[in-house]
Amino acid sequence: MTTYAALLRGINVGGRNKLPMAELRQLMEGLGHDRVRTHLQSGQAVFASGHGDEESLAAELTAAIERSFGFPVDVIVRDHTYLTAVVEACPFPAAELEARQLHVTYLSAPVTPERFADIDRDAHLPEEFALGDRALYLYAPDGLGRSKLAEALSRRRITKDLIATTRNWNTVVKLVELTAQEG
């Protein structure tokens, strides 16, 4: 069995796409997953599975949510090893920053720097971003809500053909802890 985190994009935000976590857990258990737990109301679930891989598990969960709840939800599934590697590869001094200043956008596929070539990095300083393995790290000293760089990074032409979902550093670290406990 491998332990995974499912990252759901855009649920329970602003009264839209309401998906109760208890019902999500039941749905995932019905799909044959073990040790299903949810974290917060914003769309993180930890589970163990002996079948499938990250992509097939995400596709299965996406389809099941739409069937059961009547609206589409983008899902990214990542295993404990990957989640740990994301934390270890952080190019910013995470221990010195407040969690609200550091975010990771998980991407459904690898991206190249060329996708972001038209972003004037100097114009957004002191905000910065860096690419990782299917992840984008964002340092936003004033928080995500005020970040002009986050706005530029989320433009449709940059995220075209990708699922992208962002988590603050506290959640990034917590997912590593939760998936380790499940292993």
Rank of each mutant, 00 (worst) to 15 (best):
N12M: 08
N12W: 05
N12D: 06
N12Y: 06
V13Y: 00
V13C: 00
V13D: 00
G14M: 05
G14L: 08
G15Q: 02
G15T: 04
G15F: 05
R16A: 09
R16V: 12
R16S: 09
R16T: 11
N17G: 09
N17T: 08
N17W: 10
K18R: 13
K18P: 00
L19I: 05
L19Y: 04
L19D: 04
L19A: 11
L19C: 02
L19K: 02
L19T: 04
P20T: 02
P20H: 00
P20A: 02
P20W: 01
M21F: 11
M21W: 05
A22W: 05
A22Y: 03
E23F: 11
E23R: 15
L24I: 03
L24G: 01
L24N: 01
R25T: 14
R25G: 02
R25A: 10
R25Q: 11
Q26H: 09
Q26S: 13
L27A: 04
L27E: 10
M28Y: 07
M28E: 08
M28A: 13
E29R: 09
E29C: 03
E29M: 10
E29S: 11
G30R: 14
G30T: 12
L31H: 03
L31C: 08
G32Q: 00
G32M: 01
D34A: 14
D34P: 02
D34I: 05
D34G: 06
R35E: 14
V36H: 03
V36G: 03
V36P: 06
R37E: 12
T38M: 04
T38G: 03
H39V: 12
L40V: 14
Q41A: 13
Q41W: 12
Q41D: 11
Q41H: 10
Q41I: 10
Q41M: 06
Q41S: 09
S42N: 07
S42I: 00
S42Q: 01
G43K: 05
Q44K: 13
A45L: 11
A45G: 06
A45T: 03
V46C: 03
V46Q: 01
V46K: 02
F47Y: 11
F47P: 08
F47S: 00
F47H: 00
F47M: 06
A48E: 15
A48S: 15
S49G: 09
S49F: 01
G50R: 09
G50N: 04
G50Q: 10
G50P: 08
H51Y: 09
H51V: 13
H51D: 10
H51L: 08
G52F: 15
G52I: 09
D53L: 07
D53H: 12
D53W: 10
E54L: 05
E54G: 14
E54N: 15
E54R: 13
E54D: 15
E55R: 13
E55S: 12
S56C: 08
S56A: 11
S56W: 04
L57E: 01
L57Y: 09
A58K: 01
A58S: 04
A58C: 03
A59D: 14
A59E: 13
A59K: 09
A59L: 15
A59F: 07
E60G: 11
E60F: 04
L61D: 00
L61G: 00
L61W: 02
T62H: 12
T62I: 07
A63R: 05
A63C: 01
A63V: 05
A64F: 14
A64E: 14
A64Y: 12
I65S: 01
E66R: 04
E66M: 10
E66T: 11
S68L: 01
S68Q: 07
S68I: 01
F69S: 07
